[in-house]
């Protein structure tokens, strides 16, 4: 469809699988993308048909292909707002997780830190056009000792014409190793 999306470098065929990931390559973003894609194995995102396209620490780009099962208005074929909400939620969560190093990059952080969503605010600017992909870009904006702030934007043709935008706030939770 030749849709515009943020041009960044990483592109991998197929889904990553944590078990198959070999030694870290020279490109940390590539590793992160591979590993986060395996993380996109989150059942609900997979069930919707969503995927992580690329990722770097604190940033993620996801794609939701149009699907009839996600329609909210059968008269118009427009996606249910909830499907967009779920992608925005996931993009914020993945951006926070990779920003904290909890997802994948730092074994120590992974063992000792977790995080939970406090709230998610969503603004709907316009209906998503049927029969077209929805792109969702998530970004971890600020990490403090206890609270992490994230933003995400859903769009189709252009990142400058958002379908919806989200602001998410997360709290980090210390967990004891092995617990």
């Amino acid at each position: 469809m030749g849709l515009a999306r943020p041009v960044s470098s990483v592109e991998i065929d197929g889904y990553g699988d944590a078990a198959k990931v070999g030694p870290m390559s020279d490109n940390p973003d590539l590793d992160l993308t591979t590993l986060m894609r395996s993380r996109a194995g989150t059942a609900f995102i997979l069930a919707m048909g969503g995927e992580i396209v690329e990722a770097s620490a604190g940033k993620v780009l996801m794609r939701l292909p149009y699907s009839r099962k996600l329609i909210g208005n059968p008269d118009t074929g427009v996606l249910h707002g909830g499907a967009i909400t779920a992608m925005l939620d996931h993009a914020c969560g993945m951006a926070v997780g990779s920003g904290l190093g909890v997802i994948i990059t730092e074994a120590q952080a992974r063992q000792t830190t977790s995080y939970a969503t406090l709230d998610l605010r969503v603004d709907y600017m316009k209906a998503a056009r049927p029969n077209a992909d929805v792109w969702v870009a998530g970004e971890c904006v600020k990490i403090t000792r206890q609270i992490v702030f994230a933003r995400a934007r859903a769009y189709q043709e252009s990142v400058d014409e958002p379908v919806a935008m989200a602001t998410g706030t997360f709290i980090t939770t210390e967990t004891r190793p092995g617990s």
């Binding site: 707002g81 909830g82 909400t85 779920a86 939620d89 969503v122």
Partner: peptide, 11 residues
């Protein structure tokens, strides 16, 4: 999933 929770509330 947080998105499922949001979807149900929205619905």
């Amino acid at each position: 999933h947080g998105g499922v929770i949001g979807s149900l509330l929205e619905t």
